[in-house]
């Protein structure tokens, strides 16, 4: 074998072997990390778990602050409650919520009190916006609250058959994946509605 051919053969071997050897040495303490970096490991090992009482969700190396309720719920006479949540997009990419809907269930009695949906919203990276939730209560909801939750300030609710559609992505989950969602003043609101009082003194405004 002549010198040029020998040199080129050695070069080929070095090019093929060297980068892999360097990475193997770098990951000698965690060989799995060579194929599965922490981000992918998180993805493969499943979702975010139970969101009960969580303010922040960590997933695949990213941290998502959960939306927080801002202001008081607004009630209209057609059995509709509007809730405004504030959410900050913590990511470098845009999040487009095309639609979101779920059944809202009284956690204590597993009784469906209404359905909830969100207006389409686009969150640019690191942008903070209001997320408008509309809850349409069933005709039986006021009766249920009157009977079982008289005088309570907070109604523990859960989302059931939760479905969210981001741009080109649709996520559907049952109620077990989401923790109880407390809706303060909802009981009060429903009692207000039941009593046919158009504006409750504690409420900042009522949409009609």
């Amino acid at each position: 074998m002549n010198k040029v051919k020998l040199f080129l053969t050695v070069l080929s071997i070095l090019i093929a072997v060297m980068p892999i050897t360097v990475q193997v040495i770098r990951h000698r303490d965690n060989p799995v990390g060579l194929i599965l970096p922490p981000t992918i490991d998180d993805l493969l090992n499943g979702g975010v778990g139970d969101l009960s009482d969580a303010d922040i969700v960590s997933y695949a190396g990213m941290t998502f602050p959960l939306p927080s309720l801002s202001g008081a719920p607004m009630l209209s006479q057609d059995n509709t409650v509007k809730l405004v949540y504030t959410f900050t997009n913590p990511l470098e990419g845009t999040i487009t919520i095309v639609s979101m809907d779920a059944e809202i269930v009284c956690k204590e009695h597993n009784f469906t009190i209404g359905t909830v949906f969100v207006e389409p919203t686009t969150f640019e990276p690191h942008q903070t916006l209001d997320l408008n939730l509309t809850c349409i209560l069933t005709p039986q909801a006021t009766e249920h609250i009157k009977t079982h939750h008289q005088g309570q300030d907070i109604l523990n609710t859960e989302f059931k058959n939760f479905s969210v559609e981001l741009r080109d992505i649709k996520i559907e989950m049952d109620h077990r994946k989401l923790g109880p969602i407390q809706i303060p003043q909802l009981t009060l609101l429903l009692q207000t509605l039941t009593n046919n009082i158009t504006q409750h003194p504690f409420l900042p405004s009522i949409s009609r």
Partner: peptide
């Protein structure tokens, strides 16, 4: 996949983007 996922494949630079955050697999990087 929408705004969420972007997979770029080439023999020189293969990377995965999740909500704007890019990451690489060390073996593929080598």
């Amino acid at each position: 996949i929408g705004d969420a996922v972007k997979v770029n494949v080439s023999p020189m630079n293969t990377n995965f983007g999740l909500f704007g955050t890019n990451f690489k697999i060390p073996l593929i990087y080598a």
